[in-house]
């Protein structure tokens, strides 16, 4: 589904990703861990197509297509979803209106008719139940005045609504209480299918207790320095990242 080869990315002439390789196949869950400031969010943004980052060399192929030929909206409509580390507030725009616009623009891209209000509201109800999100969030303006945890739950709700092929969740578990963590994790577990894939960026092993990843990667100074199975996450939790530095791998 996704194949990244020897990727180099810069912002303002500062190289942040320095030769990264990653392959994600349908049905897989990959966890990416690593210290602050090593380029995890940068990687997520680059896959989504954010223009402030410059790919200086290397390639990203998504569903067999060079991703650099696709706009942000095309990538989204082709099934790439990014759960933001810092979701953005859009004052005055209701969640319903926002999601309806998103769903229908994606449908239009795929040549489908737009959902009418009745069908759309039914879809919303169904997904709200699935991810256990309350109406008092979906009745409000997009992320406006949401608490940190509420914003993260709202990202999961949007993911459920858009039903992506490749979901990248950037620290969606940070700042969550135990219940919210379970909501977020269950959302992923329920949406997991053989034909979709997840990249989960996290600092904590606890999320991976709920969502068992197929692979765990350590991103360090712009490269994946170690990959393993779920046991690697536990090892990282115990030992930190120090042992991976100084060429210990």
């Amino acid at each position: 589904m996704l194949k990244i080869s020897n990727l180099h990315v810069s912002i303002n002439n500062k190289e942040i990703i320095k030769g990264l390789n990653l392959e994600v196949k349908a049905g897989e869950v990959h966890a990416i861990m690593g210290p602050n400031g090593t380029g995890k969010s940068t990687l997520a943004s680059v896959i989504a197509g954010r223009e402030i980052y410059e790919i200086t060399s290397g390639t990203i192929f998504y569903k067999g297509k060079d991703i650099q030929t696709m706009s942000i909206e095309e990538r989204a409509s082709e099934g790439i979803f990014l759960g933001f580390q810092y979701p953005v507030e859009i004052p005055g725009v209701s969640m319903t209106n926002f999601m309806k616009t998103a769903v229908n623009e994606q449908r239009k891209y795929r040549g489908q008719d737009p959902l009418n209000s009745t069908d759309f509201l039914a879809l919303m109800e169904e997904k709200k139940k699935l991810v256990e999100i309350q109406s008092n969030l979906t009745n409000r303006s997009v992320n406006e005045g949401f608490s940190g945890g509420e914003k993260k739950k709202n990202e999961i709700f949007q993911m459920a609504m858009l039903d992506p092929a490749l979901a990248i969740l950037d620290e969606t578990d940070s700042g969550l209480d135990i219940d919210a963590l379970r909501v977020v994790a269950n959302g992923v577990v329920k949406l997991r299918r053989p034909d979709n894939a997840f990249i989960i960026i996290t600092h904590y092993q606890r999320l991976l207790d709920y969502i068992v990843p197929d692979f765990v990667h350590v991103l360090f100074e712009g490269r994946i320095v170690k990959s393993g199975r779920k046991e690697l996450a536990m090892e990282l939790e115990e030992r930190g990242y120090e042992w991976l530095k100084n060429g210990n791998f």
């Binding site: 197509g49 942000i72 909206e73 989204a76 933001f84 953005v88 926002f98 998103a102 623009e105």
Partner: peptide, 13 residues
């Protein structure tokens, strides 16, 4: 730019 990127990422042109 953040708001636009957020919308674009949801498939909204």
């Amino acid at each position: 730019e953040d708001q636009l990127f957020y919308c674009n990422q949801r498939g909204i042109w």
